[in-house]
Design a protein around this nucleic acid. Structure first.
Length: 161
DNA sequence: GCCAACGTTGGC
DNA sequence: GCCAACGTTGGC
């Protein structure tokens, strides 16, 4: 029998630093923030079906002048209904979602440390990272798995500085 | 179920 | 601000 693909244990999660930077996350109570506002089914399903507490997270700054990995974090909760979908004042309000059957979920993410910025350009320069999903043209997913090898390469590199 | 239109993402 | 890529919507 073919062995099933193991569950990813590491993730890359994008955040716009204007909204929540690694500094903001580290300054939050318990250095933990609810990862609300995900409105993409594939990203939601990663949180719902594959993430486990303790999984490693590359905290990635997107939609800014200097995109790249800005810190290391970990998954700190299971996926629960995202409260912002029920808040008409929120930009993430989803009038089609109901309390009985919430459409959107979020995990909590605990920031562990800020690192030097590993820029997209630098990531592209490393053959070891060439297969990373975040480097693919047209990539728009805000949450994606990172392989054990990619995780080790990046974390060792960042923490070795 | 197809597919065009539309909106959003995100790097540059 | 531009534009490529892609997800979603809605008419048919």
């Amino acid at each position: 029998m073919p062995s099933p693909t193991p569950r990813p244990r590491h993730w890359l999660m994008k955040s716009e630093p204007d909204e929540c930077s690694i500094d903001d996350a580290l300054a939050a109570p318990g250095a933990t923030v609810p990862w609300t506002g995900v409105r993409n089914y594939q990203a939601r399903n990663f949180m719902r079906d594959a993430m486990r507490v303790g999984d490693g997270v590359l905290f990635y700054h997107s939609g800014c002048a200097q995109p790249g990995v800005a810190g290391i974090a970990e998954v700190a909760s299971q996926a629960c209904p995202d409260a912002t979908q029920f808040d008409p004042a929120s930009p993430y309000f989803d009038p089609a979602s109901t309390q009985d059957s919430p459409r959107w979920l979020n995990v909590d993410v605990r920031a562990l440390r800020k690192t030097r910025l590993l820029t997209l350009a630098e990531m592209r320069s490393h053959p070891e990272l060439a297969q990373m999903q975040v480097l693919r043209k047209g990539n728009r997913l805000s949450i994606m798995p990172v392989t054990d090898e990619e995780w080790r390469f990046i974390v060792d590199g960042l923490l070795g500085d």
